[in-house]
Amino acid sequence: MSEQDHRVRGVDHVAFPTFDPAATVRFYRDVLGFPVVHSICAAGWGPENHPDFIHFFFDIGNGDRIAFFYYFGTPPEVGGPAGEKGDVHARFGADVPEYFVRSRHLAIHVDSEEDLLEYRRRLDASSWPVEMQIRHETIESIYTHDPNGYMFEITRALRPVLPQEDVDAELTVDALLDVVAEPEPTFGKLLARKAELIASRVPV
């Protein structure tokens, strides 16, 4: 367990590029109802031929924000050739497995089933309908892709996280660090190491 005090207060902002600000504003502001809360209009500067840009922010609840950069005069090809999979920032070939393509995503929290279904209703009435609604036994989520191809999830917890789950997570991470420090880490080796940590650290 970390002995250091925990001072941070959530996400200030997470930022992504967009080449389609009109659709991005429609999706986040008009479809989802996320207020526009901040923007920066900046002339390009610096040594790297930085284009002029607009940086605009949407409130995602809790005072946290999702932000986008729109660069004037900059085509999507600035990020390389279009990918068969992925989004405007992460471009992947057709052979890259879906689990990897989907691994990096943003999940926004709601408190209730009513709230989850309200966002489902808003998305389903838009050009970006919900692609999946999945109940993973302890959480329930809806998923779609935003106009930039970014995977977008809204999720709710079906029960609170219990204290023993935090303890278990610490043992998992410690076991993981031990296993990845050795050659050829496997899931079986992790479970064996975690069993040792449970036996040695958890009182009977």
């Binding site: 278990d168 043992l171 079986g188 479970l191 064996a192 975690k194 069993a195 040792e196 940590l197 449970i198 036996a199």
Partner: peptide
């Protein structure tokens, strides 16, 4: 959560 080393899944 864990499998002791005397066993294997």
């Amino acid at each position: 959560a864990g499998v002791a080393r005397d066993g294997r899944i």
